[in-house]
Amino acid sequence: MNARTAVVTGGASGIGAATVARFLDDGWTVVAADLNDASGERLLAEHDGAAKDGRLLFARCDVAEEEDIQAAIDAAVGAGGHLDCLVNNAGVGGAFGPVTEISVEDWDYTFAVLSRAVFLGIKHAARVMRGQPDGGSIVNVASIAALAGDAGPQSYSAAKASVLHMSRVFATELGPDRIRVNCVCPGVIATPLNPAASEEFEGSPLAAIQPLPYVGRPEHLAGAIAFLAGPDSTFITGQYLAVDGGVEAAGPRLGSILGTDPRSVGLVGVNRGSTGRKATVHRKVTP
């Protein structure tokens, strides 16, 4: 069988470019679909050998336009004869501001790029994959903003929540065709889309909310996407994987903020509630 073939939307920068690089390292043929021609040219130059060998193609693609999505997928099938994975990664920051001030046009633009594009990608990838004996894998890039009400701008969060739920909805529909649909939810990742991500973790605002003590990089997402794209995840579908340094697991950290976490003042023991038995409390002994 020929090398596995993938389409990565938003593939010319950030998480998309890192995913393209990972796929190429793993021997895949990749179509990087992106709206930015200059970024596409830089990507081809960076992977000159793969481009000359025909393992890397660039397709100019407005992911909100159905014809562009279909053309990118057709390019992958033309290059490899099949489509093993689609990564719906392309994104924008989208509309922001008070809900009373956001324009309908800006809201619709945000959903066109972040939500409709994912639907279009799944639609056209599924048309190809359902005719393949092994189906295929679709990986959608959502965000931890999909999991909470204050982890991103309103329109971005709502659109990413739809991406997460589409992953479940279409995993259910397409499972009988051996098409797996999963989702990754990045946390704070240092990409061009997120210039506020600090290069230095220590002392940054991120340090107050993220358990792992280092900045998230596009390569961290690329590894998770490669796992969900490949053979080691063939019995996983309809799931999301938070690649966030533990931010979701840590939650709102109310104990630290409100001062109700005994660890913050060095106390150890057990609270027995309303059982009528006294709590046991002592100072922490170990450093």
Rank of each mutant, 00 (worst) to 15 (best):
M1K: 12
N2F: 15
T9G: 06
T9I: 05
G14R: 10
I15V: 11
I15Y: 05
I15H: 04
R22F: 09
L24A: 02
A32L: 05
D34W: 07
D34K: 03
L35C: 04
L35R: 14
N36M: 11
D37A: 10
A38S: 11
S39T: 10
G40N: 05
L44C: 12
A45H: 14
H47V: 13
G49T: 10
K52Y: 01
L56S: 09
R60H: 08
V63L: 07
E65W: 06
E66A: 08
D68Y: 09
Q70H: 08
Q70S: 02
A71Y: 07
A72F: 11
A76G: 01
G78W: 07
A79V: 07
G81W: 07
L83Q: 06
D84M: 10
N88D: 11
N88T: 11
A90D: 06
A90N: 03
G91Q: 07
G93L: 15
A95N: 10
T100A: 14
E101L: 03
V104L: 15
W107S: 04
D108C: 00
D108V: 09
Y109R: 15
A112L: 03
R116H: 03
K123H: 06
K123Y: 04
A125L: 08
A126G: 07
A126M: 04
G131R: 14
G131V: 11
Q132I: 04
G135K: 04
G136H: 00
S137T: 09
N140K: 13
S143V: 04
I144W: 08
A145W: 01
L147Y: 02
A148T: 13
G149V: 10
G149T: 05
Q154K: 01
S157Y: 05
A158M: 01
A161R: 06
L164I: 09
M166H: 09
V169R: 04
T172C: 12
T172H: 12
T172M: 08
E173C: 01
P176K: 06
R178I: 00
I179M: 07
V181G: 00
P186H: 06
S198Y: 04
A208Q: 15
A208R: 13
V215I: 14
E219R: 02
L228R: 01
A229L: 08
G230R: 00
P231F: 00
F235V: 03
T237N: 05
L241R: 08
V243T: 03
D244C: 11
G245I: 09
G246E: 14
S256Q: 15
S264V: 15
V268E: 14
V270A: 15
R272W: 07
G276S: 09
G276K: 10
R277T: 14
K278F: 15
T280C: 12
V281C: 00
H282N: 00
V285T: 13
V285P: 09
V285C: 12
T286N: 09
P287W: 02
